[in-house]
Design a protein around this nucleic acid. Structure first.
Length: 442
RNA sequence: GCCCUGGUGGUGUAGGGGCUAUCAUGUGGGCCUGUCGAGCCCACGACUCGGGUUCAAAUCCCGGCCAGGGCGCCA
């Protein structure tokens, strides 16, 4: 099989499929990609070549090209990789308005058939089938376009934060302590000791506040060993985290809403074609976002017939109820101190309430943040109150003894944010190789 | 982890104690000079695994595995 394939040699792609213009008519160009479909009508063969940008038609009329080339084309199979040199021609009859009349074709690699799933969207495959053969699934534009948008989103996030004078940091994902409380951690073997995969950069980015770097951000994976099995949870996700000194929760909420607003604008501006492919009409929310007090959330949820007590976290039914009442992006503020982590600052005037907030998009929590406790003794008290041992936080706590400024921050789930932008119903759509309760490969 | 539903060619499905197991797409072959979900003809290809009931199980029962939906868990 392989002896029939050609080497790349000195051939290089001169154009992507969608970047043609009328002035190029007649010009010889080289395109490279995968065979999306072949329509052999006998006297004329149409080969649809797909690359990153889209699809261009190679048109081979028997009268215009040599018999040898025609025979070569007739032997081509779906999803094989080819390079085509030919003349570009404007044509109203061709999809996209342009077609290429081939002079020479190289078969760079052949595809095995049949394919594990259909790349032309004639027959839909289930997400499980698609994830098993993700590289082929991503040949479908509706699948890969999510990652083009995610890339734009992350680029825009970095731009925004860099403009705001945030410094990008990298904190360890191999950590010693399982005592941060809350979520389950993945244990791993670290030489002769046990270690864990980091659940959050929280403690590290707070320690950075004691360094004088003032404003930091990190975009990195976090790991949570929860056995959840839903459309919006994974065991490995990307967290967009910031922490800023000499700030309170109001300041970082402004940064967060400003960032979401800017990023959505950027994606709408520069990703127009991509959004169109998904059929998404991206609405840019006005800022400031609505802020709703936790106590009012409880009242609204109860008024919708969903039972919820003050001091409880939102159940799924509660999230749906509040999501129905609010729309788009909104903050839930003044969470009860007791259900928030130890590092969250209690409200001065009413310590039962905290300076913590969640950013919601409809019924989906996409970010949570807070003003943090920067006073050492209060922090120790809060750790004890949550049933944790201050001794295991020794190194973290020490950072609060030598001049820790007041600070605040948040973490935003990159995949959940991508879901908001793309309209994906399953978080797995927004990760190339998702890790969930059952899936560890590919 | 719990509840509900399901697992049929490569993919997506119909069927539901005994027939040659349905359809689409695909794959292989043939015809066709403007296809664009091309069309037409021929062929190929499947009942999740283990156990049980039964003269007979893809179908009913039990269990495993896997999946879909919902929930829980998720500082």
């Amino acid at each position: 099989m392989n002896k029939l394939t050609d080497s790349l040699g000195d051939w290089r792609r001169t154009h992507y499929s969608k970047r043609m213009d009328p002035e190029m008519s007649g010009e010889q160009i080289t395109v490279m990609g995968w065979i999306h479909e072949i329509r052999d009508l006998g006297g004329i063969i149409f080969v649809l070549l797909r690359d990153r940008d889209g699809i261009i038609q190679i048109t081979a009329p028997s009268k215009k090209i040599s018999k040898e080339l025609l025979d070569e084309i007739r032997k081509l199979k779906k999803e094989s990789v080819i390079a085509v040199r030919g003349n570009i021609q404007e044509s109203g009859k061709a999809p996209g308005g342009y077609e290429i009349i081939p002079n020479e074709i190289k078969l760079l690699n052949q595809s095995k058939l049949p394919l594990p799933l259909d790349t032309t969207d004639k027959v839909r495959a289930e997400i499980d089938t698609r994830l098993d053969s993700r590289y082929i699934d991503l040949r479908r534009p509706t699948s890969s376009v999510i990652f083009k948008i995610k890339s734009r989103m992350l680029h825009s996030v970095r731009n925004f934060l860099e403009k705001g004078e945030f410094i990008e940091i990298n904190t360890p994902k191999l950590v010693a302590s399982a005592t941060e409380g809350g979520t389950e951690l993945f244990p791993i073997t670290y030489f002769e000791r046990e270690a864990f995969l980091g659940q959050s950069p929280q403690l590290y980015k707070q320690m950075m506040m004691a360094t004088g770097l003032d404003k930091v951000y990190e975009i990195a994976p976090i790991f949570r060993a929860e056995e959840h099995d839903t459309l919006r949870h994974l065991n490995e996700v990307i967290s967009i985290d910031i922490e800023a000194s000499f700030c309170d929760h109001e300041d970082v909420m402004k940064i967060l809403e400003g960032m979401v607003h800017t990023v959505l604008g950027d994606v709408a501006n520069y990703g127009e074609d991509e959004l169109k492919l998904l059929g998404v009409d991206l609405e840019i929310p006005d800022i400031p976002f609505d802020r709703i007090d936790y106590d009012d959330v409880v009242d609204i949820v109860n008024s919708k017939g969903v039972n919820m007590g003050y001091g409880e976290d939102l159940s799924r039914a509660a999230e749906k109820a509040i999501g129905e009442h609010m729309n788009n992006y909104y903050f839930i503020t003044h969470w009860p101190t007791d259900i928030k982590p130890f590092y969250v600052m209690p409200d001065d005037k009413d310590p039962k309430r905290s300076c913590a907030f969640d950013l919601m998009y409809k019924d989906l929590e996409i970010s949570s943040g807070a003003q943090r406790v920067h006073k050492h003794d209060l922090l120790v008290e809060r750790i004890k109150k949550q049933g944790l041992n201050p001794v295991s936080f020794e190194r973290y706590l020490a950072a609060f003894e030598y001049g820790m400024p007041p600070h605040a921050g948040w973490g935003l789930g990159a995949e959940r944010f991508t879901m908001c932008i793309t309209g994906a119903k399953n978080i797995r759509e927004t990760v190339l190789f998702p890790r969930d309760r059952r899936r560890l490969t590919p």
